[in-house]
């Protein structure tokens, strides 16, 4: 190639032309083109507009705010094609993936749990516009990765007097001290934005909301928390448990049935994509811990940062059983790095 790039593996095996054709055929990218005027990402619940054929931007559709528990819990997110995603073992042709952020509310408080990926910012803006009002704003995230805190700067910078509910490591605050990247609303937020402790195995009442934080049931990154809100029974599981995907761009991103569960092997492959250390590893204590979290909490909903929300005790129980089996199966997946340099 003229520019020195070997593109034989471009886009995970798919040709660039094929990807671009998909983009041209797809729905609206949600963010404005560089230097151009803002293009609406769509009102909540309304179908997206068609994508400009000349666009080279990423695909995102259905930027929506969905009530999971009216007046109390909302999913804020969008849908992308299930391709070029590191957590999937392979692209899912014709498949789609929900990307999620969440907002908890009561009469006087509004808690953003996972500000989410920048590509879902249009939905997040809608959530800020429609849900904050005069409420006090809190922000909580499960891990300090771009998929969870990509919009942290926007929330901190655009909401009045936000408070950070933080359970991570102090050094990480220095990394994200200027989290807005292209949006410089909150440069140097340390010392200006209150930070309230939300360590593992602690609980806090935020108005009528009852939050509890714990070490993640299973994880890839060391400092990953899960959060449980008792009144909704919602467990926020970060980058875990998002193993239900969409067959259509406008399919509901909430699973309420135990039918058509994915196979144990399929879920194990997805777990191993995220938690790469589990391949060829032995971790009975992790599986026990994962199951114990569900024994000790009345979980009626599981809210991951990607993949469908799982709603209902029966649905949650079926997925806990499935994931338990898949965690064991992930241990039997070959360790590619070990074999790579044979």
């Amino acid at each position: 190639m003229g520019d020195g790039i070997d593109r034989r593996a471009l886009l995970g095996g798919a040709g660039a032309g094929a990807i671009m054709a998909l983009l041209r055929d797809s729905y609206a990218a949600s963010l404005p083109p560089a230097g151009g005027p803002g293009r609406a990402g769509g009102e909540p619940g309304r179908p997206p507009a068609a994508l400009d054929a000349a666009s080279t931007r990423a695909f995102a559709a259905n930027q929506t705010v969905t009530a999971l528990v009216p007046g109390r819990l909302y999913r804020v997110g969008c849908v992308v094609r299930a391709e070029r995603l590191s957590w999937l073992p392979a692209d899912l042709p014709g498949g789609f993936e929900p990307l999620n952020a969440y907002v908890l509310t009561d009469e006087t408080n509004c808690v953003f749990v996972e500000p989410g990926m920048p590509i879902l910012l249009p939905a997040l803006k809608s959530a800020i516009d429609t849900l904050v009002g005069g409420r006090r704003v809190w922000v909580n995230f499960t891990r300090n990765e771009a998929d969870c805190i990509g919009n942290l700067g926007y929330v901190l910078g655009s909401c009045p007097q936000p408070t950070l509910l933080f359970g991570g490591a102090g050094g990480i605050l220095e990394w994200i001290n200027d989290p807005a990247v292209s949006m410089l609303e909150v440069r140097d937020f340390l010392g200006r934005i209150p930070i309230v402790d939300a360590r593992n195995d602690t609980a806090r009442e935020v108005g009528a909301l009852r939050m509890r934080w714990m070490d993640a049931g299973y994880k890839q990154m060391l400092i990953t928390q899960w959060a449980f809100e008792e009144t909704t029974g919602c467990l926020f599981t970060s980058d875990a448990m998002g193993y239900r995907h969409l067959a259509a761009v406008d399919a509901p991103p909430v699973v309420e049935s135990v039918r058509q569960l994915p196979s144990v092997d399929a879920v194990a492959a997805e777990i191993a994509r995220r938690m790469n250390w589990m391949r060829e590893a032995e971790y009975p204590e992790v599986i026990e811990r994962f199951q114990r979290i569900f024994r000790e909490h009345d979980v009626r909903m599981v809210a991951p940062i990607h993949g469908c929300v799982l709603r209902g005790r029966e649905v949650v129980a079926a997925h806990v059983k499935l994931v338990s089996k898949a965690l064991r199966a992930a241990s039997r997946i070959a360790d590619a790095e070990r074999l790579r340099y044979a």
Partner: peptide, 24 residues
Amino acid sequence: RDYHLFHPEIALDRLVMMQHGDRL
């Protein structure tokens, strides 16, 4: 992979996939 989700402002053709053994 995933960077288009974190940087939707970047044109996709500026994100060039490399795999083990690829050379630049």
